[in-house]
Design a protein around this nucleic acid. Structure first.
Length: 797
DNA sequence: CTAACAGCAACC
DNA sequence: GTTGCTGTTAGG
């Protein structure tokens, strides 16, 4: 007799463990680990979807074992290693099994048709209803009277059962409808060979028509794009379509603009420079000893050539490779390079693919047709046959962290995958994460430096805003900056101002001496609360009133930190009324970005001001002055990673904006701040040493593991009670794990979405396995279930 | 005395 | 989530 261990697709932590089911004789040859099945569950024999993680001969379960009802997949959708990875994710990130599984099933849409139709007849009924069906379904009044069922009850029950049947039908249909993958296309245009000839042979045609044909020369375009060229493009295009110069077609919405068919597909071998050859040799040596390698990147093109070389070698030995970019847009912009080197072995995977395209990619990867996959996080969960190399590009980018549960950093998954499949993992970054560098220092990952440092940032001037104030300048921009902006305007060069105005101005600082109130225990800036005009610590709940006088210098000039983009624009237009100002910010779509980029390259912008996006999506040269106008707010964000984020974003900003002749400038109230100095000195190691010392002292990741529990509740009193009983329970359970951990008392966290009262409990521990063991225990004891509040677990990555 | 109800454990 | 079991209680 064969037994299958099955995880159920249920959103309940208490039943999220394997259940044993007997495999019916006739299915023994078909069923293996990695396929989904339908089983009956509970007293009511509800039909639920399950996933087989393993097959065994015997069971320890003493009760009555049920049989597997049906098979969903005709072959395993996860291989052995992937099943193990999925289980590891479940325990490591305290998620449900099916939540972890969802990352693997994202590309599987179309299911077996037989499954679809077979299930229409069966539905879940509980015992009471089954019993009712057996006894009372007949409309015969005599029988009903005998059985003592009131006619009106029968009506209600019949209705109930019929509703259930309907619901069941609906449910299965949604799950398995193969036609659900229908795509909605966008109208696009393609230049035919005939059209190309027409351009080359200088055939007579309208000016607009020629322009349109030429714009289609390099790639297909969507109607929306052509509209930007000429509002009435259809007028000139229609005759071209009639002449068969241009083909109109409907393509899937996103693939279209980036359709792989527009790229030249070649196979080229990689040629390295002498310096790169040395680096590559080192890389090969290091991968023999360790599975992880880190590229500290100072030369982007060199980095890619090394990537290609490494991939090429993997292909030669019959293995495949995957490259993970943080974002879809980055994937798109790197695509072409990959096609040039590896032609049709390349697959591109991202969230904007249609279900059909996804399934197609899944199949081709599984069958070994595609050997180089580039894409976003989820691309790592495809069924690679013989994976030799995983590359994570731009490791520091926050998009590498998955937002939905399980919350993880893709580099951690890559590490695990490489251990499971014996693949090399390669992380590349120009502004390393502290967590990654920590692994390098601990000798878990080897490091190679790519290219040489430019040391351009050393020219950055740090402007003391306290001095400015003392000398009578109450404005938001320093006199030096205004002076530089004026001269750069004169020389027709652009000024770029970076301001990170997202979020609230929630710290408080002394305008006189730059002092910021910090938590005595946790070392982070205290956050300002409007309700009671007080300052709170984000982690431990320490609370104090906003001081009237600065504790350091006794001044009364205590102010909220910060101003926004709008205020900056207003100020600039007053100080430099002739300057043409361009504003860029997060909520811009692709066309707006294009437009702005064009305006910048056409020299229509004198001063560009913007938030984070300025670093990623905009291209500019000829920058006269590049300035960070409000670094202090970012430095005092009230979380322990503030300095790290500041180092990364501001370094990148200056690298992007400065060439050898650009004036760099940072405005601050803390001119002695170490992070600012490290940015100026272009010295990551120096920054890291200071930062890791701070984290050691204050006990923050990566030194400790940190997890926070959030308790949500509508009712104020109950929220408090629940939070405290959870706190007590955690404390009690922790006793089992010896010492080396700290739990902070529940802290009431300020306004959250949905009007919920939220309490937060922070747990720090030196042992990673503590909360992995703690969570199942707390769940088993029913502590969280006993609470009326919703509880969520947030692991700090 | 009973219907109603909340609390609870189990689901293989 | 769904179910049945258990103990408690309001209402007659």
């Amino acid at each position: 007799m064969k037994i299958a261990e099955v995880f159920l697709n249920q959103t309940n932590k208490r039943i999220d463990h394997p259940y044993d089911y007997r495999i019916p004789q006739q299915l023994e040859s078909v069923i293996e680990a990695g396929i989904r099945v339908v089983v009956q569950f509970g007293i009511g024999n509800r039909r639920v979807e399950g996933f087989i993680i393993s097959i065994k001969e015997t069971t320890n379960f003493t009760g009555r074992i049920k049989e597997i009802t049906e098979i969903i997949d005709s072959q395993p959708i996860l291989n052995k290693e992937q099943i193990e990875l999925c289980l590891w994710m479940k325990t490591t990130y305290c998620s449900l099994f099916y939540e972890a599984l969802s990352y693997f099933t994202m590309s599987i849409q179309v299911k077996d048709e037989t499954y679809y139709y077979k299930n229409l007849g069966s539905f879940d009924l509980n015992l009471k209803e089954n019993w009712f069906l057996e006894h009372y379904y007949p409309k015969d009044q005599k029988t009903l009277r005998q059985k003592k069922v009131k006619p009106e009850d029968r009506v209600i029950l019949v209705e109930l059962v019929e509703r259930k049947i309907l619901a069941a039908k609906k449910r299965w249909r949604i799950l398995s409808d193969p036609t659900a993958a229908e795509t909605v296309g966008e109208i696009s245009y393609h230049l035919t060979d005939l059209g190309r000839e027409a351009i080359d042979s200088n055939k007579r045609m309208g000016k607009k028509q020629l322009e349109l044909l030429k714009s289609l020369q390099n790639n297909d375009m969507m109607a929306a794009d052509l509209k930007m060229l000429s509002a009435q493009f259809k007028k000139s295009l229609n005759p071209l379509i009639l002449k068969n110069y241009v083909i109109e077609y409907e393509a899937s919405p996103h693939q279209n603009a980036y359709n792989s068919s527009r790229f030249e597909k070649q196979r080229r071998s990689v040629v390295l420079t002498a310096h790169e050859q040395l680096n590559y040799k080192r890389y090969l040596e290091l991968t023999k000893a360790k599975s992880g390698v880190f590229f500290h990147v100072f030369d982007g093109t060199s980095k890619y050539r090394l990537f290609f070389k490494a991939i090429e070698d993997q292909l030669k030995s019959g293995k495949s490779a995957v490259v993970i970019f943080p974002e879809v847009n980055m994937t798109f912009s790197r695509m072409e390079m990959f096609y040039k080197y590896f032609g049709d072995l390349v697959g591109v995977f991202h969230g904007q693919l249609t279900p059909k395209e996804r399934t197609d990619l899944y199949r081709r990867v599984r069958d070994g047709e595609l050997k180089v996959v580039i894409g976003v996080r989820t691309a790592l969960f495809l069924p690679y046959q013989n994976l030799g190399l995983i590359i994570i590009d731009d490791d520091h980018d926050p998009s590498h962290i998955s937002i939905s549960t399980p919350r993880f950093h893709i580099a951690d998954i890559a590490k695990k995958v490489s251990a499971l499949m014996g693949a090399t993992y390669l992380i590349a970054d120009d502004t390393p994460r502290v967590a990654t560098w920590y692994q390098i220092e601990k000798n878990e990952i080897a490091k190679i430096q790519i290219g040489v440092e430019q040391k351009l940032r050393q020219a950055i001037e740090i402007v003391d805003m306290q001095k400015e104030m003392h000398q009578g300048n109450m404005g938001i921009l320093s006199r030096t900056l205004v002076k530089y902006l004026t001269t750069s305007l004169l020389h027709k060069r652009m000024g770029v101002l970076f301001i990170n105005n997202k979020g609230y101005a929630n710290s408080v600082l002394c305008r006189n001496c730059g002092h910021v109130e910090k938590c005595p225990q946790c070392g982070v800036a205290l956050k300002y609360f409007n309700q009671d005009h007080s300052l709170h610590c984000h982690y431990c709940g320490y609370k104090k009133a906003v001081p009237i006088k600065c504790p350091k210098c006794n001044s009364e000039k205590i102010r909220h930190m910060g101003f926004g983009l709008d205020q900056l624009e207003e100020y600039l237009s007053k100080v430099l009324p002739d300057a043409r100002i361009g504003i860029v910010q997060g909520a811009m779509n692709r066309t707006e970005i294009k437009k702005m980029n064009r305006a910048i390259s056409d020299g229509e912008i004198d001063i560009l001001i913007g938030t984070q996006v300025i670093i990623k999506h905009f291209n500019f040269t000829n920058v006269g002055v590049a300035a960070a106008v409000l670094i202090d707010r970012d430095l005092n964000q009230g979380n322990y990673q503030a300095s790290e984020t500041v180092y990364q974003t501001y370094s990148r900003f200056f690298v992007k904006a400065m060439d050898g002749t650009t004036k760099g400038l940072i405005q601050t109230h803390e001119p002695e701040n170490e992070t600012i100095y490290s940015i100026k000195n272009e010295n990551f190691q120096e920054f890291y040493r200071g930062e890791i010392r701070y984290r050691q002292l204050m006990k923050y990741p990566p030194i400790v593991n940190m997890v926070s529990f959030s308790v949500f509740q509508k009712n104020e009193k109950e929220a408090e009670n629940d939070a405290f009983s959870l706190y007590v329970a955690i404390k009690n359970e922790l006793k089992m794990f010896g010492d080396g951990h700290t739990v902070y008392k529940p802290v009431r966290v300020g306004a959250t979405k949905g009007g919920n009262i939220t309490y937060q409990i922070v747990l720090k521990t030196l042992k990673a396995e503590v909360f992995q063991n703690l969570m199942p225990k707390i769940i088993k004891l029913g502590i969280i279930e006993a609470l009326k509040s919703k509880v969520s677990v947030h692991i700090d990555l």
